[in-house]
Measured scan of single mutants.
Amino acid sequence: TEEYEYTDEQQAREAAREWREKGYTVTIEEHNGRWRVKTG
């Protein structure tokens, strides 16, 4: 599992979409105004 943090929701969603296209399972969670994208 890798985790990436973004301050911008749009960036987080874009990144998540790219990971999904590569076949990863992706979770996005908002935490204190930051967006965490977890792949695994």
Rank of each mutant, 00 (worst) to 15 (best):
K38G: 05
T39M: 14
W35K: 01
A16N: 01
R17S: 09
R34S: 09
K22S: 05
R20I: 15
K22E: 05
A15D: 04
T27K: 07
T1W: 15
T25D: 12
E14V: 10
E9W: 08
N32E: 12
G33I: 00
E5R: 04
E14C: 09
I28K: 00
E29T: 12
G33F: 03
Q11E: 14
W35H: 02
E5N: 07
E14G: 06
K38E: 05
I28F: 04
Y4H: 09
A12P: 00
T7I: 12
G33K: 03
E9A: 07
N32M: 05
A12D: 00
T27P: 00
E2A: 14
T27R: 05
R34K: 14
R20T: 11
H31S: 10
E2K: 13
G23E: 02
R36W: 12
R34T: 07
T7N: 14
D8N: 13
E2L: 14
W35S: 01
I28Y: 03
N32W: 03
E14M: 07
R17D: 12
T27Y: 09
E9G: 04
G33S: 03
R36T: 13
Y4W: 12
T1P: 14
R36Q: 09
T39I: 15
A12T: 01
G23D: 03
W19D: 02
H31P: 00
E29P: 00
A15R: 07
T1F: 15
R34M: 11
E30Y: 15
E5K: 05
H31F: 12
I28V: 13
E14F: 03
T7F: 12
Y24P: 01
Y24E: 04
E18Y: 14
T1M: 14
V37D: 00
W19F: 14
Q11S: 14
T7M: 12
E21Q: 06
Q10K: 12
E18Q: 14
R34G: 07
K22M: 09
T39P: 10
G23S: 02
N32T: 03
Y4K: 08
G33T: 02
I28D: 00
E29Q: 08
R36Y: 15
D8L: 05
E30D: 06
A15I: 07
Q11F: 06
R13D: 05
K38F: 07
Q11A: 14
A16T: 04
H31T: 10
